[in-house]
Design a protein around this nucleic acid. Structure first.
Lengths: 258, 258
DNA sequence: GCCAGGAGTTCCACTTTATGGAACTAGGTT
DNA sequence: AACCTAGTTCCATAAAGTGGAACTCCTGGC
């Protein structure tokens, strides 16, 4: 009647999915009336579809009759769905960042007293990063590690900080100052601190509750990462990390979602 | 054609939901063919419905074209859907336990060095527990706390253990022995260890990965909780806790789900 | 206690939309 | 190259979904 133009014939399912999406993406329980308004469907249609969704465990009602995501979502979440699918959610953001910078992109998380790379997009040049997925690097020397440290997502192990290049930060005071900078700027830089000739910039990925769960990074040889380039790259990196955070339910300042 | 007898007219949505359910509840990615077989739908129908689900972010395909839960599920999980909905999932189990014992039922989780009550069903007697939701109790003196401790879901704070009654366990060795008993028996008992005249029995609630996330408890005045009653109550409590665990995706011994 | 108004569900004639067999396309295997 | 197997697109058919109106159930006002 109004939306028109469905690629193929699946109106009922599409409408049901739209309702579901409203329910799931809302931060608070949604009322029947809000749903009819949001989707523009007739009351009768909305009612029937919601009943079907409820019957199938896709939505449930709270004690005021408002709609919440159903058993299927909850069960998925409890089964650890989130833990196993960070890479999948992140992929589009990595790809985009890779396309716009041309450099090697990585996603890293804390793994004990190290930073582990869990996803990568290869650079478009002949000279660049090899495959780092599965590799763990020292927290204090890598950009990803510094982001995780700066936001309390990882803790340094007790021992002294290993030196891997002559630029590696090994003093606790220097590191502390650097981490403060990371928080202030919104991104971390490792300028030949891990390997000579390698510059990496990394930005934090936040979860719904504001905690940092991962870091997104761009790595390039010093030859391709001059000061001005670095600024632009850092901005893009922060942008994509913010996009990913948002996909994970992070809402920067507001407490109640739209 | 076969299933027949739908309460009301929503075939397409029901079928789509069934497909979705297969995908979400499977431990591993599901192939197109498995889905046609599992649901008994025509290839063309399956194809159209899956396309619709995919278009709406309810399923996605891995690189082999197999189906996985989509962005909507992942996003829900990352937003902490699990954290906020334990009570909702648990409610039916609490209610059932409350109905069959008539006593005060609680659900508790670890909160720092204490056990916090997050849900309750009031007892059917005039004399019984007041409202404990939101209250935190010492780990070593409460049944819920002992369950959490016994399964590594909570850690005692460093200081000495506070005595609240003359039966409170305050020696580390005694507590350690008691916790071993909790693991062996499958439930914990606090017999006037928190408050004189109060007996509580608690059983662990497991998550998909076998870790304990909460404890389910039955509390009664000593006057109503004699030895034989206690045994029956403990059995019911363990039963319901197991049911709840199962709802959270926990599969006791098997690794692969049904 | 009764009536008014809002919220949601059920009914039913209408017709749009989903259905499934068959034809078709895309990979992979012998 | 011929032959499977897996999956998508087509299309006539009819079954399923649609929405307006009637109906039921609450809730609050007076």
């Amino acid at each position: 009647m109004s939306t028109a133009g469905n690629p193929s014939g699946t109106q009922a399912v599409d409408r049901a999915a739209k309702l579901l999406s409203e329910v799931v993406h809302s931060a608070v329980p949604v009322t029947f009336t809000e749903l009819t308004a949001a989707t523009g469907l007739a009351k009768s249609t909305t009612s029937r579809l919601l009943l079907a969704l409820e019957r199938n465990g896709l939505v449930r009602r709270d004690d005021h009759g408002r709609f919440l995501p159903g058993e299927m979502f909850v069960s998925f979440a409890w089964r650890g769905g989130a833990d196993t699918s960070l890479v999948a959610v992140a992929q589009p953001f990595l790809d985009r960042l890779g396309k716009s910078t041309g450099e090697t992109i990585n996603l890293g998380v804390a793994n004990g007293p190290q930073a582990e790379t869990i996803a990568q997009v290869d650079c478009t040049y002949l000279i660049g990063g090899t495959n780092w997925v599965g590799l763990s690097v020292p927290l204090h020397a890598s950009a990803i590690g510094k982001v995780l440290l700066a936001h309390g997502a990882a803790q340094l192990s007790a021992g002294p900080m290993a030196r891997t290049t002559d630029k590696t930060i090994t003093s606790e005071a220097t590191l502390r100052a650097d981490l403060a900078g990371v928080r202030a700027r919104g991104y971390a830089v490792s300028d030949e601190e891990l390997e000579p000739g390698l510059i990496t910039i990394a930005a934090p990925v936040f979860r719904f509750d504001g905690t940092v769960v991962a870091a997104l990074s761009v790595s390039a040889p010093t030859s391709r990462m001059k000061r001005e380039t670095a600024m632009a790259v850092a901005r893009r990196c922060v942008e994509e990390a913010a996009g990913l955070s948002s996909a994970l339910g992070y809402r920067p300042r507001a407490r109640k979602g739209a």
